[in-house]
Amino acid sequence: MRKIHLLFCLLIFSSVTLFAYEDPRKFPDIDPKYIEIDILDPNQKVGYTVGDYIVREINLTVKKPFKLIEESLPIVGYEKRYRGQLLGISLKEIDVSKESRDEFSSYLIKLKYQIFTNNVVAKPASITADYYRFINPNEPKKIQKFRVPEFTFAISPIAIFGDVKIENDMSPYRGPFFLDKIQGENKIKYSLVALLLISLIFVYIYGRYTWLPTRTFSMIYRKFKKQKPSAANTKKIITALHAGFDNLIDQSLFEDNIPLLIKKNNSFKHIEKELHTFFKISRALFFQKHIKLDQDELNKWLINFALHCRMCERRLIVNPKEIKGISF
């Protein structure tokens, strides 16, 4: 009983397998008048090697009453054979688009094959012919075939034949090949040092010119920005600003040596007009008693000027629209 059961299973398996490998060539050829085919093969015919792709585009027009049996198209993963031998070429992708009209149906079939074989010398290879099957709905039992021609090409070796095999050439005079990791490590080290240096430079620039609150005009601005207008306060801020300029150029700054200040810090060029006004104010306050000054307006102007000096000290550019004059 057990044997009968085994035999039955074997018969079923054999019939399924045989059906699966049914030879398409046994079907009669379709009358060519019903078929129009246009194949676009790659221009490259040689130089293929393992891993390469070959793409074919087949434009197939089937006239009524025939229809393409789409199950007869190649299946992804199918490996091409020649006389039962695997060729090392398999279908990776298939893309079929269909367009139906009253008189015909047209199919655009894109086939992408990949090569899995190689050889030490060039060898011929081909994408063997495929047989697509067609059916006439009026005669459903009479299936017919159409042969899609093959595409032949040459597979080339990766290396030139006779290339040295290292295992056959173990000369004692040649040291073993090592992967040199020191260069890589050094690159990382140098990169880290460069990164560190750049970071330090940025910190220095940022600290020198931007945010450090200990700089002269930063302190002046901070000290006086909230002061109330009065003659005494005006004198104090002007004196502090003069001291700031003197400190910056390491000598007394007068109106006629403003270029020295600009040479020392070019940002002050953008407030040159304000600098001249500042000296005008300073002269009026300290040396020309007959000139009357509006303390309120003056105080605002001086605080704004101190802010601009702070910006210049930080190498920032003062917006020209923020530069205001003062009348006295």
Partner: peptide, 8 residues
């Protein structure tokens, strides 16, 4: 002298 002596 002119450079170093401060006015204010």
């Amino acid at each position: 002298i002119l450079n170093k002596v401060s006015v204010t």
